[in-house]
Design a protein around this nucleic acid. Structure first.
Length: 290
DNA sequence: AGCCAGGCCCTCC
DNA sequence: GGAGGGCCTGGC
């Protein structure tokens, strides 16, 4: 059992369940009130829970020594979260949300899995996206060695390219199967390295991602934000569309397009617009549940 | 039955 | 360059 200390506001459960990652499973709460999550990242099964002053975790099969920096990176615990939040507190709506639920972080996921996941998100719902991702891993991913559970790593580009459109369709991906298969083929053929987009400028990386069939402005911005270090990314989905229309454009007569919404939000919220996005998304969804 | 779900693509203007 | 319709599939 390993421990990562942190002092800033950090809500592990809200972060893992905020709809940016899809392979974390909540376990039943312990008697002490803590809750374990089990997930698969970087070909490891990771269990993690939040305790006072930090997070406890273990991983298998890799050693704690090798996984520690990877997990720390994945959780972005080295971000100066209070400083980021402080750049957004000029906004009344966001300030209210920070007061209500502080500590939702942006994760730094693996780009390939993130790309496939959000290709699968098009005109879909979260339970089925989760099922699609899990089914792909079960059918085509490599078994994780040395563990009793039957979880597989997320499939590599080559594994999904070999799987092909027809078998992906059988898993229930629908029209997205074609896009996933094509993306897998492109990446497996080594046309380019997705990780290299982390070093690219936001606009260049965006232009590159939308060249994938099935990847438009919204999906690309999700991939940039959740896996490619582009905190200025601002994906506009139906929830953000609603949030902005109701909370910021309610006086406006005409309908604002989603492209204009993104440009407006990035100009308003700046280099950490992605964090604003995450809170607006969460806040708007939460309001409907109440 | 018909609509919606964290959009995208294609056509047509 | 923007609006409108179709799309796999499953749940309500």
């Amino acid at each position: 059992m390993a421990f990562i200390e942190h002092s800033d506001a950090f809500d592990l459960a809200a972060t893992l369940e905020s709809g940016q990652a899809f392979r974390w499973r909540r376990e039943d709460a312990q008697n002490d009130g803590t809750t374990w999550f089990e997930g698969v990242i970087f070909s490891n099964i990771v269990r993690i829970r939040q305790v006072t002053g930090g997070v406890e975790w273990d991983a298998s099969p890799d050693s704690e020594t090798s996984m520690a920096p990877i997990l720390r990176d994945y959780l972005r615990l080295d971000d100066d979260f209070p400083a980021i939040i402080s750049t957004l507190e000029f906004d009344d709506i966001l300030r209210g949300m920070f007061a209500e639920y502080k500590g939702i972080r942006i994760l730094r996921q693996e780009p390939w899995e993130c790309l496939v996941t959000f290709i699968c998100s098009a005109n879909n719902n979260i339970p089925r996206i989760t099922k699609n991702v899990e089914d792909m891993a079960a059918a085509f991913g490599s078994p994780i060695q040395g563990t009793k559970t039957e979880k597989n790593a997320f499939p590599t580009p080559a594994q999904l390219a070999d799987a092909g459109e027809a078998s992906l369709r059988k898993l229930g991906l629908g029209f997205r199967a074609k896009y996933v298969a094509a993306a897998a083929r492109r990446v497996a053929d080594g046309e380019f390295d997705l990780y290299s987009l982390r070093e690219a400028a936001y606009q260049d990386a965006l232009d590159t991602l939308v060249e994938f069939a099935g990847v438009g402005d919204k999906v690309a911005n999700c991939v940039l934000l959740f896996s490619m270090d582009k905190c200025e990314a601002f994906p506009v989905d139906v929830w953000i569309d609603r949030a902005l229309r109701e909370w910021y454009f309610s006086d406006s007569e005409e309908k604002v397009s989603r492209n204009k919404m993104r440009a407006w939000a990035q100009a308003r919220f700046g280099e950490h617009a992605g964090y604003a996005n995450q809170y607006l998304f969460h806040g708007r969804r939460l309001r409907d549940r109440k």
